[in-house]
Computed example of a mutant assay.
Amino acid sequence: MTTSTTRALLLCAAVAGPLWSAVSLAQAATREGFDLTRHPLSLLSTGSLGWLQIANFVVGGILLLLGAAGLRRALDGGWAPRLVAVAGAGMIAAGVLVMDPADGFPAGTPAGPGALGPAGIGHLAAGSITFLSLIAACHVLGRRFSREGARGRAVASRVAGTALLLGNLWAMGGGTGGSLTLAVGAITAMLWIAWVAAETALKGRR
């Protein structure tokens, strides 16, 4: 059985994905000039209300770091908790390093990609680290579930990781609606990590 401390840490990971997703999507639906088919969710960190998304990244990253400690205890170590921890650190860095305004957002910004400053470059690097870590974590969990004979969970893990991989590749390749496919992939992977953490906490898996 998991201890109360381990369960509390796992619940941090269980909250991280849904919280980050809900706050991001709520802003995407309400911020003037934001278009999820053209603008990545990271762009919400710019403008007068940018502090909301900055805080969202930092809080989400801290929750993932805490959750990774819970996963390490509950799953007896392994690569999955380490990868979740790296993803958490990447999210914190992505919050601190703010993306540059671009493509008409915030409202009044000229159309086009815009200038890419040091913070913007750092944000892209942090985002890449986060995405790669989440992709790997999902596939590592898929392999773990396969060994345990949990075929449904193994398939779901691999689907979540592949969704983020394909969404990221499509966005990097400049595909139509790339920001949307990336958002779908990132949210899918984060919600799957959250589900695994919540299930582990509730069932007392070791």
Rank of each mutant, 00 (worst) to 15 (best):
S42I: 08
G70K: 03
D103W: 08
P118C: 05
K203S: 13
V140N: 04
R158S: 14
I129Q: 01
L71D: 02
G33D: 07
R7A: 14
A126D: 03
T37M: 03
A136N: 06
G117D: 04
A102R: 14
L43M: 09
P113N: 02
G112F: 09
C138M: 15
R72G: 03
G174F: 04
G152L: 10
W51A: 08
G174M: 07
A197V: 05
G149P: 03
A163W: 01
P118A: 05
L141G: 06
T6N: 07
A186S: 13
F131K: 02
A69R: 15
G78E: 04
L169N: 01
V96S: 04
G173R: 07
R82T: 15
T2K: 10
I121S: 06
V184P: 01
V59D: 10
V84C: 06
G152M: 11
S179F: 08
S179Y: 04
V98D: 12
G17A: 02
A26L: 14
D103S: 15
P118S: 09
K203A: 15
A160N: 02
G175V: 06
A68M: 02
F105S: 09
T6G: 08
M190V: 00
A198S: 12
A119F: 12
A156F: 09
S48F: 02
W79L: 14
L36M: 10
G47Y: 07
A87P: 08
G17I: 00
A85V: 01
F105A: 09
M172L: 15
C138N: 14
L97I: 11
A68D: 02
V96Y: 03
D103Q: 14
T181Y: 14
I135V: 14
G33P: 02
G149A: 05
L52P: 09
L71M: 07
R143Q: 11
A26D: 13
A197E: 10
I54N: 08
G167P: 01
V184D: 03
R82W: 14
K203F: 02
V159P: 12
A201G: 07
F34R: 13
G77P: 02
T176K: 12
A183L: 14
E32V: 11
V196W: 07
G77F: 01
C138I: 06
T176P: 15
P113Y: 01
D100A: 15
S42A: 15
R72L: 08
D76G: 10
A80L: 09
K203N: 14
L43G: 00
A89H: 00
T109E: 11
I193C: 11
R153W: 15
L165G: 10
G78Q: 01
P81M: 03
A201W: 03
S157N: 11
A156N: 01
